Computed example of a mutant assay.
Amino acid sequence: MKPFELKYVAGEKGLLREALHNWGISKRTLASVKYGGGQILVNGNEVTVRHPLESGDAVTVVFPLEELGKGLQAESGDLKIVFEDDSLLIVDKPPLQNTIPSREHPSGSLANIVAKHFEDNEIPATLHIATRLDRDTSGLVCIAKNRHIHHMLSIQQQEKKMSRRYEALAHGKIDQKRFTITAPIGRKNSSIIEREVRADGQFAETEVKLLKAYPEFSHIQLKLNTGRTHQIRVHLAHINHPLVGDDLYGGTRNLISRQALHCRELELVHPVTGEGLLFESPNREDMAALIR
């Protein structure tokens, strides 16, 4: 297996340590390179971070080989790949599939199938899922192929340089064309799964845009400004328009057999090239059939 590596060109004189910091290589990443079997090369020669750089020097960071966790079994299955390169894997997850294994669903998850993809293609990576979706929710999922790339994607999320737009069907007729739900979310005292709007919860904000109102439901677009567990589901229930099919938060399943929520767009900056990327996924057939 070929290890993951990144290449840079020094723009000016200075210590290698400072240049690596400017390129987004954290101290933790450097420690994993130093003690985990990686290398730092300047013009093809292995050096330490104290090495003095000259303008134009070629720097290569070779990352340690990563291994899949022993608890994650590689399993064959359908994998709809939207984009893939040495750093990123963007996939389109179907509904009724866990992102990672759970006690109730220990196999057949997206993670199990991606593990098989990594194994078959000799990609030396553990599973770094940057954007996770609930079992019922369909749509785009971003996976990093390296701890460092995952770290850089986490920074993007904190700096709001990565965004996801969802489409959903909500019970009832929503009258406002655009509005924002700002309400703190915390764990419900009586449940380890359920969340609720509560005064001592974490700040949460969801932007809502009405696409079309139907007799029984409203077709809406949502953008998350924060990433709380079950945020969309809790916020819609809070305004008395729970997701169609979301029986945990007050919806009913008379129209669809799962919560009607789909991650339609994923926008981010490529963590290596700096290129802006936008991915789209059409609604799944069960939702599309209701809004035709």
Score class of each variant (00 low, 15 high):
45 N>W: 04
68 L>A: 08
85 D>G: 11
147 R>E: 15
204 A>I: 04
5 E>M: 10
66 E>M: 12
24 G>Q: 01
124 P>A: 04
229 T>N: 06
150 H>Q: 10
216 E>V: 02
47 V>T: 05
151 H>K: 14
175 D>T: 08
130 A>Q: 13
64 P>N: 12
46 E>T: 15
78 D>F: 10
95 P>T: 07
182 T>N: 07
95 P>R: 03
13 K>T: 10
31 A>I: 09
184 P>F: 00
157 Q>N: 04
144 A>S: 15
52 P>N: 00
162 M>P: 05
93 K>E: 15
259 Q>T: 08
50 R>Y: 12
229 T>Y: 01
174 I>R: 01
57 D>M: 05
34 K>S: 03
31 A>R: 09
17 R>F: 05
114 V>Q: 14
242 P>S: 04
100 I>N: 11
68 L>Q: 09
238 H>G: 10
127 L>M: 12
88 L>V: 10
80 K>S: 12
55 S>Y: 08
22 N>A: 13
252 T>R: 01
192 I>R: 13
138 S>P: 06
225 N>P: 03
162 M>G: 04
171 H>T: 10
29 T>Y: 03
104 E>L: 09
276 G>E: 15
269 V>I: 15
44 G>D: 02
9 V>R: 11
17 R>S: 05
117 H>F: 05
123 I>A: 07
199 A>M: 11
50 R>M: 11
191 S>V: 01
268 L>S: 05
234 V>W: 02
120 D>M: 12
1 M>V: 15
44 G>N: 02
72 L>G: 15
271 P>Y: 03
178 R>W: 10
222 L>A: 09
51 H>Q: 09
91 V>I: 15
290 L>W: 02
180 T>R: 14
119 E>N: 11
221 Q>F: 00
88 L>S: 05
92 D>T: 06
157 Q>I: 02
260 A>Y: 00
250 G>Y: 01
39 Q>P: 11
203 F>S: 15
203 F>R: 13
192 I>A: 07
236 L>I: 08
77 G>P: 07
260 A>S: 01
165 R>L: 10
201 G>N: 03
14 G>P: 03
117 H>A: 01
2 K>C: 03
30 L>D: 00
19 A>P: 07
21 H>P: 00
262 H>I: 07
243 L>Y: 00
186 G>L: 14
79 L>A: 03
118 F>W: 12
291 I>G: 03
65 L>F: 05
